[in-house]
Design a protein around this nucleic acid. Structure first.
Lengths: 109, 109
DNA sequence: GCTACTCTTAACCATGTGGTTAAGAGTAGC
DNA sequence: GCTACTCTTAACCACATGGTTAAGAGTAGC
């Protein structure tokens, strides 16, 4: 089925739903890397890593720029910030709301 | 291919990668709802909503408990907190790191 | 220009998502 | 017990993900 409203948050959360891609994000947070440098420690082919980077790129989490014959990846903060912003709206829930859940459970006894 | 290490974060971020499910989370943040109440305003079948809830449930974001002949859904904060915690590690990046990126770009001129 | 290096594209396969309809399982209430 | 209500399971379809290998595109450097 065709996905009608594939928004930015969809792609961002989707991109983070994989340990390999979260690892790439963690690495890039320490500085830019080439595709090869990112792929080197990973237990999969370069092609697979390139495709993971493609998912991160489409999600706006990463940019690729050609430098000589290498492709340098950098982290873009915007998408990650948006995802964190969405979750922030529920920060209140898992602090305040926990108390009222506890309260509710006590009432059930 | 079989997914070997499908961790909790994988499922949590994956669950949030859909606007319908994020909407369900937003609704449940205001209080528990039955499956029917969640499905009512949504432009899709009850079955589709039930499957979305299944994804949220497997991700640990939501619990379902039978009450009479209805099924009541509640938000569980743990999974969301873990996802927000992961993103928090990069909060520094999109504030501090932005300055050094700017600095880097100026150096390139 | 030839070769080597780096990476992407193409083709393929298995699985999960995202939806449908149809049928089944539990519970409420007369 | 029968019926109505609420929800899940089963079967199906189309598409994206997550991996593979093989082949192609750009660039560097002799």
């Amino acid at each position: 089925m065709v996905k009608s409203s594939t928004g930015a948050l969809d792609r961002t959360f989707g991109a983070l739903a994989d340990p390999t891609r979260r690892g790439i994000v963690a690495t890039l947070a320490t500085g830019p890397r080439t595709v090869g440098a990112l792929a080197d420690p990973l237990p999969m082919s370069l092609v697979a890593v390139s495709k993971h980077i493609g998912v991160l790129e489409r999600a706006g989490v990463v940019t690729r720029t050609r430098v000589g014959r290498t492709q340098v990846c950098r982290l873009r903060p915007d998408a990650l910030r948006a995802a964190a912003g969405w979750l922030d709206a529920y920060r209140e829930f898992w602090t305040v709301q926990l108390d009222s859940l506890e309260h509710h459970l006590r009432e059930q006894v």
